[in-house]
Write a protein that binds this DNA or RNA. Structure first.
Lengths: 297, 297
DNA sequence: ATTATTGATATCTTAAAAATATCATTCAGG
DNA sequence: CCTGAATGATATTTTTAAGATATCAATAAT
């Protein structure tokens, strides 16, 4: 059985006339009779009662016709879905993101995808930069939002935005009263909370760069992975912490955020695997490039 | 696109190797490559990534494979259903029946069909004999259970069973005290309730036959279509009525049923259209012939 | 009785599927 | 770095089967 047989059968069923059906199919009548006969032989079912004067459907024919229509509809649907996947318009991908993307970047991406990429199913996983690099290599996630630099030669990095680093300190801290810009050297004597180095070099190095700029070696009293944790430790008076500016969305009663008098940037980048073969991933990247990155620059 | 393309695609997807897939399909490798290429061209979608060393599915290919499996499953189902309809194993029909079939015949038929014809959907309509004949001619019902004789040359009749006619009279009637067999002539002076003649000749004639046998002209005071109605009228003292024996299932406090001292039969028959083309109808008739009729004889 | 209509059949033609032979690329092993 | 095995693609020929033409048989309308 081939789809040709089914197509011919449908047209005969529409016309109930072999001659007209053949015309509609741009073939002559005899092969049409033959093809239908083949179909009936294979099914072992007569699909039409036919005398030399008239054609009418059998009960079984009616049922088979119904099913044939469904089959072709399903085939159309299957082809369209497949094309959609090919063009990257349909599909799912897993996005890794570091904590600092939660406040503004992630909502913007989700919103843009809802608008420009409605048939994307976006799974999301919060991971540190190093976890993301591993996950990208292992194809557990397809795209990561993290803090560069990254080493891997298999991964492509594209900068999304730059955040200023700010200092977060308890409200009752002497510097907090000033409510003005801070010079890094003023922090020389402080106790610092730091992100763990193994979570990723980018953020860690951006902070270390500040210390180098101010020429002092910080006194590190605690490490913490999550932004929330770090800010809570500040509130508890354990020490102070340098965070990207959007962490200011975390508002606690007894912490304040103050800017530096110099621009210390922390970069957030989108990263993906060089040898990606999934169209949906390429399209997602394009949507971020075209819709999201411009809003942050 | 033809089913051949899809079959080939599935085997390539299974093997991920053109040579082995071709072997499995009993064709050589080059035509397999070509057919797949045709499919990909028609879809405008690459279904496999292939280097000269390896074959792997694309995202779109995976989706199309899934759909292809579904398509073939559906096709199998469609063919099986169609064959079932052809053999008369699947389908629905409408059965007409006269009131007197309700008590024993109809339940037996339903039970037999549930057992021996489970995928039959049986619609049922209570109709008089004449209504059934009309409905059979108009193909509104496919089989009827009625009281012969019938005239139409297009209809085939087969006797199912014979019932004795009995007389139904009020408990306080003088004859009711006897509780023995009645001679028809004893009823000469009674008031009679009769079925309307236009409901069908069979039952009416069977009763008329009794009057002729006893050589009197009955005094008809009322007509009624339904057995229930007739018996209720007897209970109300309007008159007496002659009914088939299974009407005794209708038990009212102040009516009794008495047999005749002669056998006055009423026949119930199965009737269907001579030019029936629906396999399900033939099969139903066969089930009744083989399963139901023997139980009543 | 005659003719037009309609699906089936027989035979021939053509298109396309499949086979054969060969090529290009790549990777393994020396 | 070369050689050979593995593998999918390409070119060409062969075979299969779809389709065309001519014709028939049966039926219904005139």
């Amino acid at each position: 059985m081939e789809l040709r047989h089914l197509k011919y059968f449908m047209v005969i069923a529409e016309e109930l006339h072999f001659g007209r059906a053949a015309q509609k199919l741009n073939i002559s009548q005899p092969p049409l009779s033959q093809q239908l006969k083949q179909l009936e032989n294979e099914l072992q079912v007569k699909l039409f009662h036919r005398t030399n004067r008239s054609v009418e459907m059998t009960e079984a024919g009616k049922v088979f016709l119904e099913n044939t229509y469904n089959l072709f509809n399903y085939l159309d649907y299957a082809c369209e879905t497949t094309r959609g996947v090919h063009r990257g318009e349909i599909g799912e991908l897993t996005l890794g993101y570091s904590g600092s993307a939660v406040f503004d970047l992630l909502p913007t991406i989700i919103h843009s995808c809802n608008q420009h990429f409605p048939s994307l199913t976006l799974d999301m996983k919060q991971l540190t930069t190093s976890e993301q690099i591993k996950a990208l290599e292992e194809r557990k996630i397809q795209v990561g939002l993290l803090v560069p630099p990254i080493e891997s030669p298999n991964l492509i990095t594209e900068k999304i935005r730059e955040e200023k680093l700010v200092v977060c300190l308890p409200k009752n801290h002497p510097l907090a009263q000033r409510r003005t810009q801070i010079d890094a050297s003023e922090l020389a004597a402080e106790n610092f909370i730091m992100p763990p180095q193994q979570a990723g070099y980018g953020y860690y190095d951006a902070i270390k760069n500040i210390f180098e700029d101010a020429s002092f070696t910080p006194n590190i009293v605690q490490t913490a992975k999550e932004q929330h944790t770090m800010v809570s430790l500040v509130a508890a008076g354990i020490g102070i912490v340098i965070v990207p500016e959007y962490t200011q969305f975390i508002k606690l009663d007894n912490v304040v955020y103050l800017p530096f008098n110099k621009h210390y940037p922390k970069i957030t980048a989108m990263v993906w695997h060089k040898e990606n073969k999934r169209p949906v991933v390429n399209r997602f990247i394009r949507v971020v490039q075209e819709q999201v990155i411009p809003r942050f620059n």
